[in-house]
C-alpha cells in the first residue's frame, strides 16, 4: 500500500567508483554488493522510511559517475529535492573533482536543493583526504558534511534519515526546493505549487 505522506527525490552524484551504488544498496537492501560493475545511466530505487509518525517515501536516483553518462544524469538534477555529492576519502582525484560537480549542480539544480557532501570508504586504511579538509570544503560551500562507509555500514542510515527529516521540515514550512528558472513568482509571495507537485499528499 502506498500510504506515504511525502515523496522526496534524492540524487547521488560524484566520480565513478566512489561508492554511490554501494551506499544506495546498503541503505535500501542492507547489503554491500560484491563486484557489481559501474552504473549505466541512472538507477532508480525506492525506500519508505518513517520520520516522527509520518511515512516518507524516498525516491533515490543513483547516477553513473562516468563522463559519458553526463547528459543522462544531468537531467535529474532539476527535480531533485536533495543532492548527495560523494567522493572517496582514499582518492585525492575524486576530491579534486568536487568543484566541477558543484558547477554542474549550480547550473542544473534548483538553488533551494538540499546539498550534502559525503566522504565515503572511511573503513579504508589509506586515507588521503583528512576529515577536516572535507568538512572545511563543505562548510565553504554551504553543504552538510558526513563521512560514511558503505562497506561497514557507517553513517549510511543516518545520512538518508537526516535528509528525510530535513526535507520534511522544509515541506512543513512550504519551502521545498523547486526549480524556478528566474526564481520569481507571480505576485511576490512564495509559490505554493511545490506543495502539491513535489510531495504528493496522499491519504
Amino acid at each position: 500500500m502506498d500510504d506515504y505522506k511525502f515523496l522526496f527525490k534524492v540524487v547521488l552524484v560524484g566520480n565513478a567508483g566512489v561508492g554511490k551504488t554501494c551506499l544506495v544498496r546498503r541503505f535500501t537492501q542492507g547489503l554491500f554488493p560484491p563486484g557489481q560493475g559501474a552504473t549505466i545511466g541512472v538507477d532508480f530505487m525506492i525506500k519508505t522510511v518513517e520520520v516522527g509518525n509520518e511515512k516518507v517515501k524516498l525516491q533515490i536516483w543513483d547516477t553513473a559517475g562516468q563522463e559519458r553518462f553526463r547528459s543522462i544524469t544531468q537531467s535529474y538534477y532539476r527535480s531533485a529535492h536533495a543532492l548527495i555529492l560523494v567522493y572517496d576519502i582514499s582518492s585525492q582525484p575524486t576530491f579534486d573533482c568536487l568543484p566541477d560537480w558543484l558547477r554542474e549542480i549550480e547550473e542544473y539544480a534548483s538553488n533551494k536543493v538540499l546539498r550534502i557532501l559525503v566522504g565515503n570508504k572511511i573503513d579504508r586504511e589509506d586515507r588521503e583526504i583528512p576529515a577536516d579538509v572535507g568538512e572545511e570544503f563543505a562548510e565553504r560551500h554551504n553543504m552538510y558534511y558526513l563521512e560514511t562507509s558503505a562497506k561497514e555500514s557507517d553513517n549510511v542510515e543516518k545520512l538518508f534519515m537526516q535528509i528525510a527529516e530535513d526535507l520534511m521540515k522544509q515541506a512543513r514550512t512550504r519551502d521545498l526546493p523547486r526549480y524556478d528558472s528566474n526564481n520569481q513568482t507571480l505576485d511576490g509571495k512564495t509559490s505554493t505549487i511545490s506543495d502539491s507537485s513535489c510531495c504528493s499528499r496522499l491519504q
Binding site: 545511466g41 541512472v42 543522462i72 537531467s75 535529474y76 526549480y179
Partner: peptide, 17 residues
C-alpha cells in the same frame, strides 16, 4: 534512459521557457 531524459527536458522547457 534516453526517453526519460527527453521527458525531463520537455518538463523543463514547458515549465520554464
Amino acid at each position: 534512459d534516453g526517453i526519460c531524459v527527453i521527458i525531463n527536458n520537455a518538463c523543463r522547457v514547458l515549465e520554464s521557457d
